[in-house]
Design a protein around this nucleic acid. Structure first.
Length: 438
RNA sequence: GCGGAUGUAGCUCAGCUGGUUAGAGCGCUGGAUUGUGGCUCCGGAGGCCGUGGGUUCGAACCCCAUCAUUCGCCCCA
């Protein structure tokens, strides 16, 4: 029986070319959120299971997390999401932190489930949270960041839409307007969450089944179906239009318009899975016809920090996964060609190792990343190796070059080879590196 | 947890109704060409046909099981 070379199910190996892409994506994320004054934090991958039992939602903890017992008999979980952890961290230093707090992290998260397209067992997720802001300036900032992120990757507004809803508004509609009980609302919320995946008549039938005969007679079922069809806030019944949660949404959308975020819309069917959201929720959807799906989202969760027995802290946050982001970038052809960090592949000609290494050391001291081929193979094989690695320059060092102190530097992309002094080579290589960074 | 599809060389795959030593392209490697790449030509390595069992004179092929990959469902960061 041979040892398997495959990575664990649902997890990925990152070969250099994959890691390069990850570094690119994470780098863009860091630059973008740091522009808004967010600071990076991190925490252990393992958390006691109690952290998730409190508020995440039952099924996720029991069926979709990695749970095991440590040697001391404690039940531990590999974190399936970052929000409980960051809430714990904030609660621990509730009194001493300077609010508003702007924090971000790019943790790896695990869920135990069957992998499928766009969803794996391990993924990385940019988490951006703002703590201590109770009004919608927090939501505005985070949606702005989400928008900025996608645009910094080269996306345009026609490629995605930002959909906004409010838990408070939905609570009012479900309880106040339709008169549903808690259990009924819960079932209905789950159903609405999947309504775009099912035929209209099936949805209508299943929705209708949730209502009691009395509620149905009072027209609640029809009221619901009517509501879900409406695209414009102006067409809503007056009691809903005038609700303060609706006013908040309208104000939010207006501000985003002013900021030229023109692809934000109200969407009454937007639910989001977690129970801990308390008010505004938002989600970013991929508009690509082949990949029309939710990419990432977030919302306000004012109650989580308070679960740790401290004074509550109003919080808004979102999480953006690397797998879905990559699918989005690939789908819209937004992935750049990434080159390795190595600037120069050095080819030794003849028996010049000792002298050549002195030159290479100098090259490195001047800031050039140089790999030396010591295989002694023929030059054409060594050039092929450089090509395979994606390195842009090869440099030849032989006895002739060493006495002249002029070295052959060949740009493999253009095929042009020139002879230059070491310092000239350094500036050529660095100029080229800067061009690629643009 | 449920359902579908697929497992043959490093990769993509072919392999007829079951018939002898299992094939191609690409890739890898060596040479033609001992100081210069993508073309060309010649040679070479590399396979328990996912694994176990069954049917048969005979199995990559048929049957059963199992494992893996993958797409979807459930659920949803």
């Amino acid at each position: 029986m041979n040892l398997s070379t495959q990575p664990y199910k649902g997890a990925r190996d990152f070969y250099p070319e994959d890691k390069r892409l990850q570094k690119y994506m994470f780098g863009m994320m860091r630059r973008t959120v740091e522009k808004y004054g967010y600071e990076e934090y991190d925490a252990p991958v393992l958390e006691p299971i109690e952290l998730y039992l409190a508020k995440t939602g039952e099924e996720i903890v029991h069926e979709q997390t990695y749970v095991f017992e440590d040697r001391g008999g404690r039940t531990m979980t590999i974190r399936p999401e970052m929000t409980p952890t960051v809430s714990r961290m904030v609660a621990a230093r509730r009194q001493e932190l300077g609010y508003p707090l702007r924090w971000y992290s790019i943790p790896n998260l695990w869920r135990y489930e069957r992998p499928q397209r766009g969803r794996l067992r391990e993924h990385w997720q940019l988490n951006v949270d703002i703590f201590g802001v109770a009004d919608t300036t927090a939501e505005i900032e985070l949606i702005q960041i989400a928008d900025d992120l996608l645009r910094s990757f080269g996306a345009t507004h026609d490629m995605y839409s930002i959909r906004i809803n409010s838990r408070k508004l939905m609570d009012f509609i479900l309880h106040g307007y339709l008169g549903l009980s808690k259990t009924q609302s819960h079932t209905l919320v789950k159903l609405i969450d999947r309504m775009h995946k099912m035929p209209k008549d099936v949805f209508a039938a299943e929705a209708d089944a949730i209502f009691t005969p009395t509620q149905r007679d009072e027209g609640a079922s029809n009221k619901l179906l009517g509501l879900l069809k409406l695209k414009q806030i102006g067409h809503m019944p007056e009691v809903i239009r005038n609700h303060h949660a609706m006013a908040e949404i309208k104000q939010l959308l207006a501000t985003l318009q002013d900021m030229h975020i023109t692809n934000a819309v109200f969407d009454i069917t937007l639910m989001r899975g977690f129970d801990y959201y308390t008010d505004i929720v938002f989600e970013v959807f991929d508009m690509h016809p082949d990949n029309n799906r939710s990419m990432f989202g977030g919302g306000r969760y004012d109650g989580l920090v308070g679960l740790f027995g401290v004074e509550p802290v109003p919080t808004v946050g979102f999480g953006m996964g690397d797998v879905t982001l990559q699918a989005f970038l690939e789908g819209h052809d937004l992935l750049p060609n990434l080159r390795p960090e190595t600037d120069v592949y050095v080819i030794l000609v003849g028996d010049v190792y000792d002298d050549a290494m002195r030159v290479v050391r100098e090259l490195r001291q001047m800031g050039v990343n140089a790999a030396v081929d010591t295989s002694g193979r023929k030059a054409d094989k060594q050039i092929k190796t450089a090509l395979k690695k994606g390195i842009n320059y090869v440099m030849f060092i032989g006895s002739k070059e060493l006495t002249d102190e002029l070295f052959g530097i060949k740009n493999l992309a253009t095929g042009i080879e020139e002879h230059h002094s070491l310092s000239r080579i350094v500036s050529i290589v660095k100029d080229h590196r800067d061009d690629e960074d643009l």
